[in-house]
Design a protein around this nucleic acid. Structure first.
Lengths: 182, 182
DNA sequence: ATTTGCATATATCAAATCGATATATTATGT
DNA sequence: ACATAATATATCGATTTGATATATGCAAAT
């Protein structure tokens, strides 16, 4: 599922600029499972336009760069539906924090605490933010299902960190103290 | 955290070939939070060798390509510890399946069921596999903490799919039937 | 009996993506 | 007064992905 396809997905929810698509990847309902920076979004939109899957209207703005508003057309919507027929690739998860915590035994306990606390705060924020945006009843079921999945997984991650934080820090502190004493 | 650093991480657990590092990314204790194919691992190992962070011993094999066994040296270990001091990047999660399920309302219920069932089977396998590899008591705490985190999150994802599978499929089926009837 | 596929191993390369930077203006916070 | 964030597009080197090439042994299915 490349950036072109995820852009089609965002545009299926309504017209948007490249800048707005980026925001959807960061904050919106796509943020839990899609990604993409400007460096991939803008070329993708150019390509989609050239391939005739989206249409672009330039809107001049006072004291701002021109907006390029992209809109999905019928061929674009078909392309999106086709992408839903292919077998999904495996999920991909990458976490610097978990890599670091794997080597927790080599990290000072105070830093360990700071790292975990930051992530706890992050998950709390995320969950609070997600709790706010409840859907209206007429909404389609897909987005609600995916939203619920994201919330559920974030909650599990948060709970785990809160439940095991103290034990990890305590054990590492003891081990390091014993090691220093030799 | 680039592939060079994650390779250092794997090599900190013991010497390995590029091929074996790949397997660690796929199955081993790093698989929940690190990634990398041959196309990034082999260049990374060449680079690490050139930079003097790892050492390489070629082992000729009968009827097999030569093995290149890589081993972390002191400078390499220092580099790994230094990477633990930097601020971790945000986690990155990408899921084709969730993208597709976001548009569940456009997917036939039978396919929806197949997609979800496949993922349920995947999570069950993964969790069974993870349950097997228990650690010995003398092991460092970091790997156990990260292992527990992974298991906890996978379990939450599995539970969610099992609990909400039927409702999603049922609702989508009704909506599509109503839509077809017009 | 034979083909198909998987495991062992390294390597390369085009295409895709990332991450930082450039440009320009306004609004907001310190 | 000054710095930072937000709005908006664009580029570009560096990194990563995903597919393919090469070579062989072994096991399982046809």
């Amino acid at each position: 599922m490349d950036v072109k396809t995820t852009c089609l997905g965002v545009l299926a929810m309504g017209e948007a600029t490249g800048y707005e698509i980026r925001k959807h990847f960061e904050d919106g309902p796509f943020s839990h499972f899609a990604e993409g920076g400007f460096g991939s979004i803008y070329p993708a939109l150019n390509r989609l336009t050239a391939d005739g899957l989206v249409e672009c209207t330039e809107q001049a703005q006072d004291k701002r760069p021109d907006k390029k508003v992209y809109r999905l057309n019928d061929r674009g919507f078909s392309a999106l539906l086709q992408s839903l027929e292919r077998a999904p690739a495996e999920d991909r998860y990458k976490s610097d924090l978990l890599f670091m915590l794997f080597f927790a035994d080599h990290i000072p306990p105070t830093r360990l605490a700071a790292l975990i606390d930051d992530r706890i705060a992050f998950y709390r924020d995320k969950l609070a933010q997600m709790a706010e945006c409840r859907q209206d009843d007429a909404a389609p079921f897909g987005p609600a299902f995916v939203h619920g999945f994201g919330a559920c997984v974030y909650q599990a991650a948060l709970d785990y960190l809160e439940r095991h934080r103290a034990a990890l820090i305590d054990r590492v502190a003891r081990a390091q103290a014993a090691d220093a004493a030799e």
